[in-house]
């Protein structure tokens, strides 16, 4: 075989490999999409139809016209956005201190923040249940928002500290020489130029909150407080499964993540693969 032939052969082999991989990744997702446009009676039609023979928006209308189901989405958006804003706020303050100051117990605090990430949610769930009851936050937004921050905050602080560390100290020193406080330096100088880092961390935070299941399952009770992941499960609880609605709710449930991915792909990957936030 000549060199050119070998290259062509290798190219074809890789393309075949890539296509097989793509089928593995995408077929289940395509099936979800297709099922969401089916009538529930056609879900298990034999032979299976990847392209529905009677496409219908029935499953989507059923969700949009049911206030209980719309509420799942509103709850998810409200909780996730609140968690994101609060996490960024608290994390920026902490990251500034960790990046710009030396103080006793800094190493200990760093260690605590890192190790908090490894604490299993199931371990925290039981005391949270007691704590949330005690605080009167059972089945409430603040209960969810507060507890979600235990997942989002450590990562956000670590990432933002790393980001601030890449910014030259001269920037905030200049503000102080001009008579500004460290507070001014943080909000007027560092935060505005840290937008890429904030976006990465924000996306990651939003995703964690949007996807959370265990706490939402246990710390809320009434349908009007349920989030999307639990809402999907509630559709499963009835006598007959509304598969088409579960699939349409799944599609609608991944839309915010999909949009974040499409518009912020660079930040998205940066945020997800730890330690990659560099400009």
């Amino acid at each position: 075989m000549s060199r050119a032939q070998r290259r062509r052969f290798a190219r074809i082999a890789i393309l075949i490999g890539l296509v097989i991989g793509a089928l593995y990744a995408a077929l289940p997702v395509l099936w979800m999409l297709s099922s969401s446009f089916k009538q529930n009676t056609d879900i298990f039609a034999s032979p299976p139809q990847l392209i529905p023979s009677n496409p219908t928006l029935e499953a989507y209308t059923a969700i949009f016209t049911d206030p209980v189901k719309v509420r799942f989405f509103l709850n998810s958006y409200f909780v996730s956005l609140s968690v994101t804003v609060l996490t960024l706020l608290v994390a920026v303050l902490a990251a500034y201190a960790l990046s710009r100051y030396e103080f006793p117990f800094k190493r200990v605090l760093n260690m605590v923040i890192v190790s908090v990430q490894a604490v299993p949610p199931i371990t925290l769930l039981i005391p949270y249940f007691g704590l949330i009851m005690f605080l009167g936050l059972y089945n409430s937004y603040p209960g969810l928002i507060l507890t979600y921050m235990v997942f989002t905050l450590p990562y956000a602080i670590i990432m933002m500290t790393g980001y601030f560390n890449t910014l030259p100290r001269e920037l905030d020193e200049a503000v102080k020489v001009d008579g500004g406080s460290s507070w001014t330096a943080l909000w007027r100088i560092l935060v505005p130029i840290s937008v890429p880092g904030l976006v990465s961390v924000g996306i990651y935070t939003f995703m964690i909150a949007w996807n959370e299941y265990l706490f939402a399952l246990t710390l809320t009770k009434t349908p009007d407080m349920r989030t999307v992941p639990i809402g999907i499960q509630l559709l499963m609880g009835q006598h007959s499964y509304e598969w088409n609605q579960m699939m349409s709710m799944s599609i609608l449930g991944c839309i915010p993540i999909l949009l974040l991915f499409l518009f912020f792909q660079r930040y998205f990957i940066g945020g997800m693969t730890a330690g990659a936030v560099k400009n």
Partner: peptide, 10 residues
């Protein structure tokens, strides 16, 4: 892009 709950029902 899918949360675990969605992956489970799918």
């Amino acid at each position: 892009l899918f949360t675990v709950a969605i992956i489970a029902v799918l």
